[in-house]
Simulated assay, not measured.
Amino acid sequence: MGENGWRRTDAWIFVSLVIASGDGRHRRAAASRRPEGVRLTDVLSTADHLNRAIPQRHEVEIAVRRLVGAGLVSVADGWFRITDEGERLWRSRPSAGLATTVDTVQGVLGRRHAPGSAEWSLDEADHAAAVQEYAVRSIPTPRRSPEGHSGGR
């Protein structure tokens, strides 16, 4: 799409927010989701799972500005939430496998909403801290033998 249309990164961040918040899990009812929203670390973690890449600060910032401006997402006090309008868009999209969900959502965005523009910024230090938190969370904890266990018998 052109410069004014939705970018794949916008859809990637939107889908990541939906899945991280639990909105996408088996089309859950609103009462069964995290009402407070999700933190940036959860968004980055889900985005990495979807696209095998952690979104850069500017990618998150631009996508969130456009999504907030379109009324699909809100951000307050570091918590990201899908709005009622965003939830309607998510629930009414054509069903797709996880591998094609981002592309499907990008098409739906282009047909139903114009990208918005909102004042919102993501501090470089906040992004770096979220990436670091995600990295620490994803390091598997090594298994240890019980104390005093010397190996095999």
Rank of each mutant, 00 (worst) to 15 (best):
M1L: 08
G2P: 05
G2N: 15
W6S: 10
R7Q: 14
R7Y: 07
T9F: 06
T9P: 04
T9N: 13
T9S: 15
D10K: 05
D10W: 07
F14L: 15
V15Q: 00
V15M: 01
V15K: 01
S16W: 11
L17R: 08
L17Q: 14
A20E: 04
G22T: 04
G24S: 06
R25V: 09
H26L: 14
H26P: 06
R27P: 08
R27M: 05
A29T: 13
A30H: 12
R33H: 03
R33G: 00
R34H: 13
R34K: 12
E36F: 01
G37K: 06
V38P: 03
T41H: 05
D42V: 05
D42F: 08
D42P: 11
V43Y: 05
L44S: 01
S45C: 07
S45Y: 07
T46I: 03
T46G: 04
H49E: 05
H49G: 13
L50F: 14
N51F: 08
A53C: 08
I54Q: 08
P55A: 15
Q56P: 02
R57K: 14
E59S: 11
I62R: 15
I62T: 15
A63Q: 08
V64D: 02
G69T: 10
G69A: 01
A70C: 07
G71N: 15
V73I: 08
V73C: 02
S74Q: 03
A76D: 04
A76M: 06
A76V: 10
D77K: 12
D77F: 10
D77Q: 10
G78K: 06
W79A: 12
R81L: 04
R81E: 02
R81T: 10
I82R: 00
T83M: 04
T83W: 02
T83N: 07
D84W: 03
E85N: 10
G86V: 02
G86W: 05
R88W: 15
W90Q: 03
W90K: 03
R91G: 10
P94S: 15
S95V: 14
S95R: 09
A96V: 15
A96D: 04
L98F: 06
L98C: 06
T100V: 11
V105P: 00
Q106V: 12
V108N: 04
V108F: 02
V108M: 12
G110P: 06
R111E: 13
R112Y: 13
H113P: 01
G116P: 00
E119N: 11
E119F: 12
S121I: 13
L122N: 04
L122A: 08
L122Q: 15
E124R: 13
E124G: 02
D126K: 13
H127L: 11
A128Y: 10
A129M: 05
A130Y: 00
V131F: 03
Q132D: 11
E133H: 10
A135D: 12
V136H: 10
R137E: 09
S138G: 11
I139R: 14
P140I: 02
P140Q: 15
P142N: 09
S145I: 04
P146N: 07
E147I: 01
E147T: 11
H149T: 09
H149K: 07
S150P: 01
G151D: 04
G152N: 08
R153P: 12
R153I: 01
